[in-house]
Design a protein around this nucleic acid. Sequence first.
DNA 1: GAGTAAAAGCAACTGAGTTGCAGGTAGTCA
DNA 2: TGACTACCTGCAACTCAGTTGCTTTTACTC
Lengths: 126, 126
Amino acid sequence: MRNTPIRNALLNVLAQNKKPLTPQEILSGLEKKGFKANKTTVYRQIESLLEYKILNEVNLADRSKRYELSDEHGHHHHLVCLECGSIEDVELPEDMKKQEQLVWKKTKFKVLQHSLEFFGVCKKCG
Amino acid sequence: MRNTPIRNALLNVLAQNKKPLTPQEILSGLEKKGFKANKTTVYRQIESLLEYKILNEVNLADRSKRYELSDEHGHHHHLVCLECGSIEDVELPEDMKKQEQLVWKKTKFKVLQHSLEFFGVCKKCG
DNA sequence: GAGTAAAAGCAACTGAGTTGCAGGTAGTCA
DNA sequence: TGACTACCTGCAACTCAGTTGCTTTTACTC
C-alpha cells in the first residue's frame, strides 16, 4: 500500500470530521482541500483502507454506507438524531459481551461482529 | 389504504419468508405467485406499509434495505451468517433497556429506536 | 351502477457504485 | 540518478437501486 497524496488527504478529511462520512462527503471534503479527486479513486481507497482495517464501515439508515477511522476511538456506537441528522459517538462499558454469549447459548450462532446504532433526539433538539 | 390483490400477495410473500426481503426479492416472490407487478408499485406498497407500521425496515450490510412483517414476532434482532448468508432471528430478554438508559445518562440523547444486528457464523456453517 | 380517490403501470430519470482500460507515479534496486 | 514495475489514478461507460411524473385502472362509497 502506497503513501500517495490523495490517500493522505483522504485520511485527513476523515480525521477532521467527527462523524462517519459517505464516499460523496469524502469527495467534497477532498475538493475543499484542493484535491480534485475522481470518485473511482475514492471508492478504491476506501476499499483498500477497509482491508487494512484502517477504516471502519458504518451502516446507518442512509442510502450510502459511511466510513470512519477505526483507531480514532475504541469500539463505539452511534447516536443518530432524527431531527437534525447529527451523529455522535458513545462507548458502552462491557458492551455487548453478555448478549453475544446469550445468542450463542440460544442458537449456537458464533457472533464475530455486531452493529448497534441508536436513533432518537439529541441533547440540542430534545 | 385499500385492500388490493397485489398488496395481499405482497404481504403473503413476506409472511411465507422467514428472513427480511429486499424489494427485488419481493418482486420475484410476487412473480412466482403469478403476479407480474411493477417495481414502482412494490416500492410504493412498501412505503405505505411502513407508514402503517405493518412492515419493519431492516438494515443489514446489504446494498438494499430489507423488509419484514412487524407483527410476525416481537421485537427481535438478526443473525447474519457471513459464510452462507442465512438470516435468523433472536429475541434478547430485557433487550437494550439498560444500554438506552446509560446512553441517556452519559449524553442526554433520548433513544427512540435502536438497530442491533449480529454477524458471524451460523450453526450449520460453524 | 356512477363517481372518485387511491393504486398500478410505464417510461424516463437520478444517483450510488462498478468495471475496463489507458496513463501516471511511488518505491525499489542497481 | 535513472529505469523498472507494481500499484494508483482518471476517465468514460456501464449496472443497478430507487424515484418521479403522468396516465390508466380499480377498489370502495353512496
